[in-house]
Amino acid sequence: MATILLHSIQSEWMKTKRSAAFWLVLIGGVFIPAILTLVHLVYIKKLGKIYSTTPFWEKWLINGWESMSILLVPMGIVLATSLIAQLEYKNNGWKQVHTTPQSLTTVFFAKYIVVLFLMLQLFVLFGLGMYLAGAIPAWYFGHIPYPKEAFPWGKFIQINASFYVMALPIVALQYLLSIQFKNFMVSLGAGVALVVAALIALSWRYVYLIPYTYGAIHFLQLQGKMRFKSNILDVHYLALIYFFAFTLLSYILYLTKKEKG
């Protein structure tokens, strides 16, 4: 079973090669680091002071997460998951996939794992991009000191992993919408609407009910600026509960779908 799933994942991964989703993840991952690098180049004279403060790296990474957590990651997930499912709809691929000797469970999870892996790739690229965007000015310009502290790899991974967990409910719900509806606009439209609703809901008392807000909530919590506390559970657990619930729902809907291509 595991071998069949592995082969299926390899096959699904190959489909993303040169696809729009692949380029989206690649560009999405390095977008903010590239912007921050450009900003650095503009304010090059002020960098010496910024690089002398400690801790530098943690602040630097959280700074990068500002736009990523609130807007870019949710939007990236909405687009990338829709594009992955559209690979099948656009190329009439579902009927081919469903006539290969794989169980429906294998097909569902192979594609899902590829989507989750693509998102992981986005986070890894972002992390590496942030490191390079932080380090390059110090390496390149003599008057900018390299941060005194050792690079906090553990903290760096922990922060990125936390944001990844926050993104999981969005991935799950967008995957559900993308494979259920042939029309690209349904998953895309619903995703954009939910991202916008999440932005509005940030000042709402019951904001924790909306999983699309979790990335932003986590960012505000890290900044100590979150207005409301969750009365139920920590936002990490809430994200995981939503993720498993949406995954289960998506799996059941997929299995019971009457037409499979």
Binding site: H7, K15, K17, L87, K90, N92, G93, K95, T100
Partner: peptide
Amino acid sequence: LGSLIETPSLYGHLTAAENLLLLQKIY
């Protein structure tokens, strides 16, 4: 079993060999 139902099911962004390779992985 092998099948072809209505319109071809091929991934346009991949080459002919890549289209076959991704099924070779499964079979």
